[in-house]
Amino acid sequence: MKTLPSSLRQRKRYLAIEVITELEVSREELLREIFAAIGSLYGDIGSSECGIRLLDFGKQKGILRCSHRMEERSRAALATITTISGQRAIVHVLGISGTVKGATQKYIQCAAISRPEHINI
């Protein structure tokens, strides 16, 4: 399948997220929890409309992709996450951007410079 031209592609939003837990969590554990939360909140149809995809995750921070105009829905679903693989967790959206580069530069790298120590609670 050929990649669609950019004018025909679905519009996307990129959420810079941060996971606050006591111990580090893996990408798979986070993904499982995200899909469980979004599935229980919106059901299968709603989840597919959100089009969530975890692009990159490491050091408790990551980039999550979702459909355009579904940012608030995704944010609400992420807020309902309480535990990740048995330990209490908060998923906090640092910011939303229209490009991966924007989200990374604005919210992940800048945060690392201005606030070098990760919030460990």
Partner: peptide
């Protein structure tokens, strides 16, 4: 009820929109 139940203002807005 615990420190892990706290959510940010934007998250609370999104939850209220539900």
């Amino acid at each position: 009820r615990s420190i892990y139940d706290i959510r940010g203002p934007r998250e609370l807005i999104a939850l209220a929109s539900l």
